[in-house]
Computed example of a mutant assay.
Amino acid sequence: MDFSHSWTALRAAIAGLSDENFDRPSGCTGWLVRDLVCHLIIDAQDVLITLVTPTDKEPTRDEITYWDLAESAPTGDDPLDALIVRLAAAYGEPRLLELHFDDVGSAAGRAAELADPDVRVSTRDEVLTVHDYLTAYVLESTLHHLDLIAHLPDAPRPPDRGLARARELLERIAGATFPASFSDTDALLVGTGRRAPTDTERAELGRLAGKVPLVLG
């Protein structure tokens, strides 16, 4: 399962962090690594809640339409972003954050493996199949894995399989493919505004340059 592959890699990367790593910047504007890990605890809880919220209603979203596109990139000033920073600080020791994520993250992984992919579940007042929901989360977990290691050059990277799947999903959201010269990582970083394209990359993007960055929400 693509979700399990990407999620397991993300969990392993967090488990390998030193205490000092938690105070490094992440790839998310305004968040340190510890803030990102706190956000991922909430992500893991959301996965658990969603997988145990079945419904008989017809699906309203799939793995692509699950994502809403925001008009502007996060600035770190959003009240919910600020709340994450306060929550992360409340843990005190980095190991407490890591242990909490390990608990809920491993539970989310087990729940995903046990879930029937054809069951419909409800989240954010929308309905998806388990398969579509977990597929959407491949993009979420891969992007946040890249955020995690943005300033940690020695940390393990997302698996190639997850990067390729996340790129495919982002291209389907964009309705266009990134140039073959872009690595999967570059397509994801440039495509979501995590870094600006170089002049050469912008020229290669062609019409797609007018569509990126895609700010996923």
Rank of each mutant, 00 (worst) to 15 (best):
T50A: 15
T200G: 08
V212W: 03
L99Y: 11
V37K: 01
G30A: 03
A108L: 09
R86L: 14
P159N: 11
A108I: 04
T75K: 12
P94N: 07
L17T: 01
R95K: 11
D125K: 15
E204Q: 14
L148Q: 00
A180I: 07
T135Y: 12
L205A: 01
L208S: 01
D35N: 08
D43L: 10
T53D: 13
A187R: 00
P74S: 08
A90Q: 09
P179R: 07
E98A: 15
I173D: 02
T177C: 10
S18T: 15
D68V: 09
F101M: 10
L36E: 00
T60H: 13
G217R: 15
T29N: 04
A15C: 07
R120S: 06
D199W: 12
G193M: 06
L216R: 06
I64D: 01
T55I: 12
P94C: 07
P213V: 12
H5S: 14
E63M: 10
T185K: 09
S141I: 09
R172S: 07
K211S: 13
D160M: 04
L69F: 11
F178D: 02
I64K: 09
T75C: 00
A196K: 10
A209Q: 06
E113Y: 11
R11W: 06
S4Q: 15
H131Q: 11
A107I: 09
L148H: 04
A15N: 14
P156E: 12
A164F: 04
P197D: 03
S4T: 15
I14W: 06
A73R: 13
L10T: 03
A136I: 02
F3K: 07
R194I: 03
N21L: 01
F178I: 02
V85D: 03
D19T: 02
H144W: 08
D125F: 15
R11F: 07
L169I: 14
K211P: 00
P153A: 08
A136Y: 07
F3L: 11
V127N: 10
E71Y: 14
A88R: 02
D78P: 00
V138M: 02
T135H: 13
L163W: 04
D103K: 14
L48E: 06
F178H: 00
L99P: 00
D132Q: 05
R86V: 08
E140F: 03
R161D: 09
L48Q: 11
L114P: 01
V52D: 14
A13R: 06
L10F: 13
R194G: 01
S122C: 14
L97Y: 05
E126I: 04
P159M: 09
D2V: 05
A111D: 07
A176L: 07
I173M: 05
G175N: 04
T65A: 08
E168W: 11
R86D: 13
E71G: 15
V190N: 00
R195T: 03
D118V: 12
G206A: 08
P25Q: 10
T8K: 13
D77G: 02
L51A: 04
S26N: 04
I173T: 03
G217S: 14
I14K: 07
L17N: 00
G210S: 08
A108T: 05
D68G: 14
L48R: 14
T65I: 05
A176P: 00
D23I: 01
R120Q: 11
